[in-house]
């Protein structure tokens, strides 16, 4: 495969702080092919969220070059979508209106968006919840709405910042399974930030292992577990092996 979608070269980010410059991201280079599921894994302060913000065009890079879909990234773009740890639903908008928000902001065709909204709510299992308000939903359901909103304007790249990190373990696993099936259906390129190594192995094609102070890309792990993956993947020796490899890279087992 050489359908390269994202090309990051020597990306660095330095913050000026009261105690001097702080290197959040140090000379990170990588390429990502279209349709891949990538996880960024590492402890707090390893620069994974900074890298995600840079990929979303929300933060400037101090150095380096970043090309997404053939164009240098200079500002946020509609073909790159973001999802956060909290659902960030607007409480004054119904579930439906929340999913329609990207279309409204981007001035997309209303009718087409409305139909797409129905499909997406169906896809995330929230058929019939369109007229509810976010406050009436559980945490897991809200993240489902956020997932539908993420897909509403059909971005090519999905940047997900610990999207299920605030959910309980059971809900998180269900959401991971559903995310996988949605990803398989849509063929999006996903960059998924997590500090849960098992989650990263279960979901990803490749895992970017990052270490802190300064934020560096320690290595890239190819996950060769065949797809489609079901929950029983987590019982295979290959799964455990990869998890322990990554733990080793992060120095968790010393």
């Amino acid at each position: 495969m050489d359908t390269e979608l994202i090309d990051g070269r020597e990306l660095s980010k330095v913050y000026a702080t009261a105690t001097g410059p702080l290197i959040a991201l140090d000379d990170v280079s990588f390429t990502i092919e279209e349709g891949q599921f990538i996880s960024l894994v590492g402890p707090s302060g390893c620069g994974k969220s900074t890298l995600l913000s840079i990929l979303g065009g929300l933060e400037d890079r101090s150095e380096g070059d970043l090309v997404i879909a053939g164009k240098r990234l200079e500002a946020p773009r509609a073909d790159i979508g973001m999802m956060f740890q909290t659902s960030v639903l607007f409480p004054w908008r119904t579930v439906r209106e929340n999913v329609l928000l990207p279309g409204v902001v981007l001035k997309l065709d209303r009718k087409a968006q409305s139909e797409r909204c129905d499909e997406l709510l169906d896809m995330v299992g929230l058929n019939g919840f369109g007229d509810r308000y976010p406050k009436e939903l559980s945490g897991g359901m809200r993240q489902r709405v956020a997932l539908a909103r993420l897909l509403a304007h059909d971005p090519r790249v999905l940047l997900m910042d610990e999207p299920f990190g605030a959910l309980d373990e059971f809900t998180r696993e269900t959401m991971n399974l559903e995310l996988l099936s949605i990803w398989e259906k849509t063929g999006k390129t996903v960059i998924f930030v997590t500090h849960n190594i098992g989650e990263a192995v279960f979901l990803s094609d490749r895992i970017f292992v990052m270490t802190p102070r300064p934020g560096r890309l320690e290595g890239i792990v190819e996950v060769d577990i065949p797809r489609p993956r079901k929950a029983d993947v987590m019982r295979t020796p290959r799964y455990s092996e990869l998890v322990f490899d990554i733990r080793g890279m992060l120095g968790v087992d010393h």
């Binding site: 065009g57 929300l58 973001m82 960030v88 304007h153 940047l159």
Partner: peptide
């Protein structure tokens, strides 16, 4: 306002007044 909500609007390439209309104002009510 939730900083992530502002990030969301920015990621959707919302302009200043779109952010005001769809996020800041209702959020301030």
């Amino acid at each position: 306002v939730d900083p992530n909500a502002v990030k969301l609007m920015r990621s959707l390439t919302a302009g200043r007044w779109q952010t005001f209309r769809y996020l800041l104002l209702p959020n301030a009510l």
